[in-house]
Computed example of a mutant assay.
Amino acid sequence: MSQPPAPVAASFAPPPPGPPPARSGGILAHLGWETILLVLVLLTAAVVAATGTLFRGTTPWFNLATAGLLASAFALSLRTATPNLAVGAIAVLAGATYAKLAENDVAGVLAGIVALLVALLVGVVLGLIAGLTSAPAWAVSLGGLGVAQGIAFGLLDGQAVQTGSGPAGTGRAILWTLVFVAISVGGGVLWLVPGVRAALGGNRAQDDPVRFRAAKLTGALAGLGGSSLLAGLSGVALVTYIGVASPASGDNLLFAAGAALLGGVSAFGGRGGIAGTVFASALLVFADQGLIQADVPRWVTFYLTAALAILVGVGVSRLIEATSGRYAPLPPPAVAPPPPGWVPQR
C-alpha cells in the first residue's frame, strides 16, 4: 500500500504591490540628462533672447506655465505606467466648463473649482475602468479623449466663448509658471521616496497583465486621476489668460508627451527624474518662440518639433533604462502543497 507523500513545505510570500525601487544608478542617469537639458535651455534662451523678444510680455511665461502643466500631467501618468492620452481633451473640457460658468456670471474662483472637479471626475472614472479591468490605460484614456472632446464641443456649441476677462498681466503669468515648476519638481522629489514608487507603480509590475491587483487600481487612480486634475488646471489657466475658450484651445497632447519623454520620464513607466519636465518644457517653448520669430510655418513648430521631441525622448528612455539599476522580476507564484493523504494517480 502506497503511503501518501509528506506534505511539501511551501513558502507563501505575497508579491510586492509594485516594482521594487531601482538602485541608485537610476537617479544619477536622470541627473546627468537633466544637466544636459539645462545647458540646452540656457543656450536656446540666450540665442532667442538676443534675436527677438523672448522675455518681453506675458506670452512666453503663460505658454511655459500652461504647456508645462499639461506636460506634468502626462509625466505623472507615465510614472505610474498609465499613459493618459486624454490630457489634452480634458484640458479643453475644463476650460470650456470654466468659460460657460463665467458666461453665466459664476464667480471666477468657484468656476475654476467646478472645472477642476469635472476634470478630476473624468480621470477617476478612467482610473476605475483601467484598474478594475486591468485594461491598458492608453486604450481606456483614448475613449476618455473622445468623451471629453464631445462634451466640450457640446458645452461650447462648437464656437468660441468669452469669459469676460482680458489677458492677464505679467505678474499672474509668472505666478502660474512658478506653480508649474513647484508641482513638477515637487512631484519628482516625491517620486524618489521608495514607498511612493512601490505604492503607485503597480502597473509596471512584471506579472500577468490581466490579473487584478489592488496596487494596479491604486496606480491607475493616482495616474489617471492626478494627470486629469493637472490637465484641468492647465486648461483653466489658459482660458483665464486668453479670456476665451474654444473646442481646440489647450489640446496639446503632442507637446505634453514630447516634453515629458524628452525630460527623461520613462516610456516604460516607473522612472522619472526631478526637474527634467521643467527643463524640457522650457526648451520646447523657447525653441518654438525662436522659430515663430523666424517666420517658420506653424505646422513645423506645432507638429514636427513635438514629434521630434517624442522620438528623441523614446531614445532617452531606453538609454536611462539601460544605464540604471533594473527592477527585479516578481517571484514565481507559490505552489500549494498537496493535501494530506493525497496519492499520485497513475
Rank of each mutant, 00 (worst) to 15 (best):
F255K: 11
A71K: 14
A94V: 08
R23Y: 06
L233C: 05
P60C: 00
G187K: 03
L76R: 06
V185F: 07
L221M: 05
G243M: 14
P339Y: 12
A220I: 05
A287R: 04
L42S: 08
A205K: 03
V196S: 04
L64F: 15
V244E: 04
P167F: 14
G219L: 02
W61Q: 07
F62G: 00
S72P: 08
Y303D: 09
I242P: 02
T59M: 04
G131L: 08
I174G: 07
T301V: 03
G169F: 09
Q159W: 03
G273C: 05
P17N: 10
A99N: 04
P331H: 11
L142W: 13
L128E: 09
T240N: 10
T58F: 08
A139K: 13
T323Y: 01
A96C: 15
G186S: 03
I274C: 03
A50K: 01
I129V: 15
F212P: 06
A309D: 02
L175V: 15
L69D: 10
Y327D: 06
G25H: 08
P332T: 01
P331A: 14
G166L: 13
A182P: 02
G202Y: 12
G273M: 03
G166T: 11
P247V: 15
L155M: 15
A282N: 01
P60M: 04
L200Q: 09
M1R: 10
R79I: 11
I183W: 02
W138I: 09
L217W: 01
P60H: 07
A49M: 08
G57Q: 02
I129G: 07
G143D: 14
L40D: 04
I174T: 08
P329I: 08
G341N: 14
A152Y: 00
A65D: 12
V296L: 11
I183N: 03
T82W: 03
G143K: 11
A205F: 03
D207C: 06
V210P: 02
P344R: 11
A94F: 03
V125H: 07
G123W: 02
I27V: 15
A306Q: 01
A111L: 11
E34P: 04
N63R: 10
A231M: 12
V244Q: 11
V147K: 09
G158W: 13
W299M: 11
V210C: 04
G131E: 02
A96M: 11
L304P: 05
V106R: 05
A256Y: 09
P337C: 07
A334C: 09
E34W: 00
I310D: 01
T170S: 12
N63G: 13
G258I: 01
A173T: 03
P340V: 12
L311N: 10
V124W: 07
I36Q: 02
S317I: 11
S324M: 07
G263M: 11
G52A: 15
L233A: 15
P338C: 06
S281V: 06
R298E: 06
I151E: 01
D208L: 12
I242T: 13
A287G: 06
R271K: 13
L101T: 14
D208E: 15
P7W: 12
A89G: 13
L28Q: 14
K216Q: 08
V181Q: 02
G171D: 14
A86H: 05
W342M: 06
S77Q: 04
L156W: 05
A309V: 06
Y303K: 03
P16W: 07
V335Q: 14
G57W: 10
